[in-house]
Design a protein around this nucleic acid. Structure first.
Lengths: 103, 103
DNA sequence: CAAACACATGAGCTACTGCTCAAGTATTCA
DNA sequence: TGAATACTTGAGCAGTAGCTCATGTGTTTG
């Protein structure tokens, strides 16, 4: 079961992907964005107020979440509504949240 | 249900804790350390070879994992063996790994 | 006890991250 | 059509993270 330079069950690519996924969830602002979106579709301005940072900052964060396909955008008039776009990650997030809450 | 400056279901402290948890898993080296420990107890030298970074680097990473109580150390002679010390986080990690693998 | 081995730790350097600020795009409405 | 609203984006800056290198601690062995 030789896989190059190491003997881990996961290769370098998988390790990087996994780290990248957790990185997406590793910032308090993004955590709050996702927690909010768990409740349902929300637009940028509302997210800014709820999370407590500028719209610009929210927009930058949503960009990374979008690039990772964790959220999806829908424009309605001049507002842009975001939804979670990865049920499995949402599930992982919810489980982790429960973990934090119960101790 | 007023909780200060925002209306999120999770307060600032919980958001920080959750972000901190994901931060612990957000680096490829730590991901590989944890993946290795999922297979069982491992000492520092072995981890260094498997992960492919120096023993010093491994030691630094284990320190943060230790401080977060995700791993636990046991000295045996001059070697130090590490084990995962949080079943729930191990479960979350495993689920996330499966998520990455299946797509 | 001295030397060798296994690991831990502190300092410091580079790379990255999340913010602000200024400017740009898209949409509505007077 | 032009101003206002809602969001996006790029540049730049301060704080953080992960590494190396040197040194320190704990343990075994000659």
């Amino acid at each position: 079961m030789y896989n190059g330079e190491n003997m881990t069950l996961l290769d370098e690519k998988q390790a990087n992907q996994l780290a990248e996924l957790f990185s997406a969830l590793s910032d308090p602002s993004r955590v709050r964005i996702i927690a909010t979106l768990l409740e349902g579709e929300t637009n940028v301005g509302a997210l800014a107020k709820i999370v407590g940072i500028s719209e610009s900052a929210i927009s930058h964060q949503l960009r990374t979440l979008r690039q990772m396909r964790l959220v999806r955008a829908r424009r309605q008039g001049r507002e842009v509504y975001y939804v979670l776009d990865d049920a499995h990650v949402a599930d992982i997030f919810q489980r982790s949240l429960d973990h934090i809450k119960h101790k």
